[in-house]
């Protein structure tokens, strides 16, 4: 991430709309490494896109919070079974939680490698992240199949309603994340995955870690605490 224009960076910055000639010229080379190289560091010293991503994640707290509070508020209010205690599989979910946590570790190593321009490492860790993400999703697919066999559907009771929407929307976020990571991986085959792409990778990483963090909360509130009945 050494590509900021000049050293007086931010005096030029905001107003100049960041992109300097480098960016203007990079257009038309959509395949070239060029246009990821620039960074739009503004008055705060932070790239526009990174600032935007953090704002989005802050907003997502309000999003997931609402589903979590619905789950908790409706806990024990189901008029019929199956109940969480009957179904939720803590050992298995601990394993899938572990997988997701390790994907976060892989992600951070990928970003670090890209920032240090170790392209092969970056690619390796990026792929590992995506695969671990897919692993998490497989756990979820298995869990859902099992639950549906056991009679838990979206409409059977409040537990089904709140459980599937909360974990399903989280799963959707993971799916989007995996798609994003794979897209970055495929593109990296053409344009590389070094310093020039580090910011793009970092943004995907922030999203990915956030999804992980949300799962940490869900794992505790939905799964672990279900032992309390």
């Amino acid at each position: 991430m050494a590509e900021h224009h000049g050293t007086g960076g931010h005096a030029l910055q905001g107003p100049a709309r960041g992109p300097g000639a480098a960016q203007a010229l990079a257009v038309g080379h959509p395949q070239g490494a060029g246009h990821h190289a620039h960074s739009e560091v503004g008055v705060t010293g932070i790239d526009n896109r990174k600032l935007g991503m953090w704002l989005f994640l802050a907003s997502e707290c309000m999003f997931f919070g609402a589903f979590i509070v619905a789950y908790i508020a409706y806990q024990g209010k189901s008029l019929s079974g199956p109940t969480p205690e009957e179904l939720l599989n803590i050992p298995l979910t601990s394993l899938s939680t572990f997988v997701l946590l390790m994907s976060s570790l892989a992600m951070v190593l990928a970003v670090q490698a890209a920032q240090q321009d170790r392209q092969a490492d970056a690619r390796k860790w990026l792929l590992a992240t995506a695969l671990l993400g897919l692993g998490f999703l497989s756990f979820q697919a298995y869990e859902y199949t099992h639950f549906i066999h056991a009679g838990l559907t979206l409409s059977v009771n409040l537990f089904g309603t709140t459980f599937y929407t909360l974990t399903g929307l989280h799963g959707l976020h993971v799916t989007i994340g995996v798609g994003w990571l794979l897209a970055l991986f495929l593109r990296s085959l053409k344009v590389g995955l070094g310093r020039a792409q580090a910011l793009s990778l970092e943004l995907a990483g922030l999203y990915w870690h956030f999804v992980d963090v949300v799962w940490i909360v869900i794992f505790t509130l939905v799964y672990l605490m279900s032992v309390l009945g």
């Binding site: 999003f63 589903f67 209010k77 008029l79 409409s155 309603t161």
Partner: peptide
């Protein structure tokens, strides 16, 4: 996000038979 969530819940109730606002299921 709060209204986004509320609308998603409503959509799930209407489209897929979820019970967020369905008194018959609690």
């Amino acid at each position: 996000p709060a209204v986004t969530v509320a609308l998603i819940m409503l959509m799930f109730d209407r489209y897929f038979g979820a019970n967020f606002f369905n008194a018959a299921k609690g």
